[in-house]
Computed example of a mutant assay.
Amino acid sequence: MNLFKISTLLCLCISASSWALSNDTEQPIYIDSDKQDLDMQNNTVTFTGNVILRQGSIDIRADKVVVTRPGGKSGQEVIDAYGKPATFHQVMDDGKPIDGEALEMRYETSIEFLKMTNEALLIQDGSEIRGKVITYKIDEQKLAAQSGDKKRVTTILQPNQLNSNKK
């Protein structure tokens, strides 16, 4: 099967209503990589080598991305990204970017849930959260961070965010 057919099949497999905030979820998903392998029996596509996934303002970069459609059901895709680190970037509705990185990321499209594991970092408006695991429920805008072995969650808040919350 040539790359065009594989890319077309992948586009049909990925739900456009899943990735994040506002109109990003209405945009097509583009994935570029050095190599891609399709396993039709297991409903899995694996992309390796300088992988770039884009949907609207969302940009994920990784060494490897695996897209799985459990049970072949549309809108149930699970996207796993691996890198040293894998990175995530999105522009929010207010125009401010949010950036994340971790050695592993998992995005469950049906529940709009992002989980960053191992050396996780989330940066927004100059403030940072670091931990072993950072989870983000995108549609509810709820974030949780957990520490690792003998480490603690670290949060750095910039003064401009603290002052803007007082208004």
Results as ranks from 00 to 15, higher is better:
S147G: 15
L3A: 13
T109G: 06
I98F: 09
D63H: 07
R69I: 11
Q124A: 04
D24Y: 04
G131K: 06
A102C: 02
G95H: 06
S33N: 12
S15Q: 13
I14P: 07
V65K: 05
V133I: 14
K132W: 11
E26M: 02
Q76P: 03
K142H: 00
D59I: 10
G49L: 03
K96T: 15
I111Q: 08
I156T: 09
Q90N: 03
D39T: 10
M105A: 12
Y30H: 15
T25E: 08
E104S: 05
M92D: 08
L53W: 06
S33D: 15
I29L: 14
L121W: 08
V67D: 07
E128H: 10
S127K: 07
G72W: 10
D39E: 11
A145F: 02
I98Y: 03
D139K: 05
I29E: 05
L103M: 07
A62H: 08
N163M: 11
K142W: 02
L9I: 05
S33F: 09
K151V: 12
V51I: 10
D99T: 12
D125A: 03
T44A: 09
S7Y: 14
D149C: 09
I58K: 11
S110D: 14
I6M: 12
L157G: 03
D34H: 15
S164I: 02
L3F: 09
S17R: 13
K84V: 01
P159G: 08
L12V: 08
D32M: 00
Q36P: 08
Q90D: 07
M92I: 02
A86T: 04
K96Q: 15
K150P: 01
D32H: 13
L143W: 03
S147C: 11
N50F: 05
E26A: 12
D39Y: 14
V153T: 05
L12H: 04
G100Q: 09
F4W: 06
Y107L: 02
M105L: 08
